[in-house]
Write a protein that binds this DNA or RNA. Structure first.
Lengths: 250, 250
DNA sequence: CGTGAAGTTGAGTATGCTCAACGGTGGTGG
DNA sequence: CCACCACCGTTGAGCATACTCAACTTCACG
C-alpha cells in the first residue's frame, strides 16, 4: 500500500515537470476529496498546484519540530505521520496520527506547537503559509473547508481527552483499534483487518500507556478472542461489536 | 466581578430595546477584543448585533447537551462555562473551561460533540448557525479570526493531552493553576491570586483525577509553601516560579 | 547466520483510586 | 431564628491498575 502510494506520488512529480497544461497535477490527487482541496474547480486547483511542492519523507524523517517557525503547512497524501509533544525529561505524548488527506501545520502563533515526524515512508504537499494565506482570502470556500477540518480535529481531540483522562488500558486499546478501523474505511480501505503502521511505543505514547501495558493488553484481547494478531501489524477483529462494548466500558 | 459583568449585560440589553442608532450594543462589549468580533468595524458590528441575542445562565444551567442539534454558537461575555463529555457509566471528562471572550459551539457535523454548562452565573451571546454562516461568507476577516481561534484551541487541546497522558497529579495541578493564572492575566485580571470558580469535582474531571487526589495535592502544595488557599476559591501563589518547575516535572 | 531493535512476559512496586468518616457551609423549612 | 440537611472539601486506610525493571523471544536486516 505504501509502495503503491509512492508510485502515484512519483507520477505526480513527473507531471509537474511538464509544461503547463489544462490539467494541474493536483487533478490527479487520489485523496483530494478528503483534503482541504476538495470541491475546488480546475482553475483553483491550478492555483494550488502553483504554490505546492510534493515532498517525500523516509520513515522516521522529521517534518518539523515544536518551537520551529511555522512557515509551512502540509497535506498528507501517502503514508502515516505522527505529531507529538515532549516534556523536558523526555516523556512524550503523541497527540495524533495523520493519514492521507489530513492537514498539518496550522498554528495560530508563529511557532509550531508540536513536532511532526513520518512513521512510514510518506508523501506530503507543502504550502508556504505566506503564499497560502492570500489564496485563502480569494477562495472563502477553501477557508471554510479548513475551518471545517479544524473543527473536526477539535472534536477528535476532545474524544482523545476523554480517552486519556477516563478510560482504562483495555478501553483505550479498544477505542484506538476502532478509530483506526474507521479512519481506514473513511479512506476506502479495509477497516478489518486494520494495519498498525506504528510501533508499540508510539501507540503507548498516544494512549498514555507504556509499551509493556500496550503489549499485555493486546495479548489479553487476543486471549479473549476479540482480535487476532497477524504479521506485518495487521489486526483482524472478529469481535468488532464486542470491541465496541469494551471501548465504552460495558 | 460577576456582578459587574451582569450589570453591563443588562445595560447592553436595554440598549437593544432602543431604536437603531449609530452605535450597536456590541460596541460596548467589554470583551470584544478577545472574541471573534475583534477587529470588526461599526457597520459590521451592527450586522453581528442584529443576529445575536444576549442570554443569562444561572450557575449550573445547561447551555446545550452532547448529541443535540448544533443550531447555535455562543460567545461567553461573563462568567465561567465548562464543556464535557460523558461515558455511559457516568465517567466524565471536562474538556475545557471557557471564560469571557471564548467561543463555543463549533461543530463540523450537525450535532454538538460535547455538553456545555454554566459553572457560575454567566452571560453569553447567542448566534444562530444559519444566520452566522452567510455573515462569515461576507466577512472573510471574521472567518479568518474564527480559524485563528480554532487553531488556538487545538493547541490548547494538545497541551491538555500531554497533561492527561503524561503528567503526575502534582504536575497536573501545577499546570492547571498556571494556565488559569495566565488566562486571567490575558483578560486583564489578576493572575495572582487566581480564583477557582469551579468545584474540586470539576477540576478532577478536567485533569483526569478524583476529587480526593485534587484535594490532597492542593494540601501538599500548601504544605510545601508553593500556594496559599484563601476562602472563596482564591489561590495565592507565592512560589510561582517553583510552580512552573513543578508543572514540568523538575 | 549474526546482530540489534522491537515485542512479549514476569515479578514487584507505587501512584492514584475506592471506600469511609468527619468538619464546615449555605440553603430550607419548621 | 435556628435546627436540619445536603453538599463540598478534607483526611485516612487499604487496594488495584498500570508502571518499573528485567529477562527472554521474535523479527528485520545486513
Amino acid at each position: 500500500m505504501q509502495r503503491l502510494d509512492i508510485k502515484s506520488a512519483l507520477t505526480r512529480r513527473e507531471a509537474a515537470k511538464k509544461p503547463p497544461e489544462d490539467k494541474s497535477p493536483c487533478s490527479a490527487c487520489s485523496v483530494r476529496h478528503l483534503t482541504v482541496c476538495a470541491a475546488l474547480d480546475e482553475s483553483e486547483l491550478a492555483e494550488v498546484s502553483a504554490i505546492s511542492k510534493t515532498i517525500e519523507l523516509a520513515a522516521g524523517g522529521p517534518l518539523f519540530d515544536e518551537g520551529e517557525k511555522a512557515s509551512n503547512l502540509y497535506n498528507v497524501t501517502a503514508g502515516t505521520i505522527k505529531i507529538y509533544k515532549l516534556l523536558s525529561d523526555g516523556r512524550r505524548q503523541v497527540t495524533g496520527f495523520l493519514f492521507p488527506g489530513d492537514f498539518v501545520g496550522l498554528a495560530n502563533e508563529s511557532l509550531y506547537a508540536y513536532s511532526a515526524e513520518a512513521v512510514t515512508v510518506c508523501t506530503v504537499c507543502r504550502f508556504s503559509r505566506r503564499e497560502l494565506e492570500p489564496l485563502l482570502d480569494r477562495h472563502p470556500k477553501m477557508e471554510r473547508r479548513l475551518l471545517g477540518m479544524a473543527s473536526h480535529e477539535l472534536a477528535a481531540a476532545q474524544e482523545q481527552m476523554l480517552l486519556l483522562g477516563r478510560k482504562t488500558a483495555k478501553e483505550k486499546i479498544a477505542s484506538f483499534l476502532l478509530s483506526l478501523s474507521q479512519r481506514a474505511q473513511d479512506r476506502g480501505q479495509s477497516g478489518n483487518p486494520v494495519t498498525l503502521a506504528m510501533s508499540r511505543t508510539d501507540i503507548g505514547d498516544f494512549l498514555g500507556l507504556t509499551t509493556e501495558t500496550v503489549s499485555r493488553t493486546f495479548t489479553h484481547l487476543r486471549s479473549a478472542g476479540v482480535i487476532v494478531l497477524h504479521p506485518g501489524g495487521k489486526v483482524e477483529i472478529p469481535g468488532i461489536n464486542r470491541l465496541r462494548e469494551i471501548s465504552e466500558g460495558l
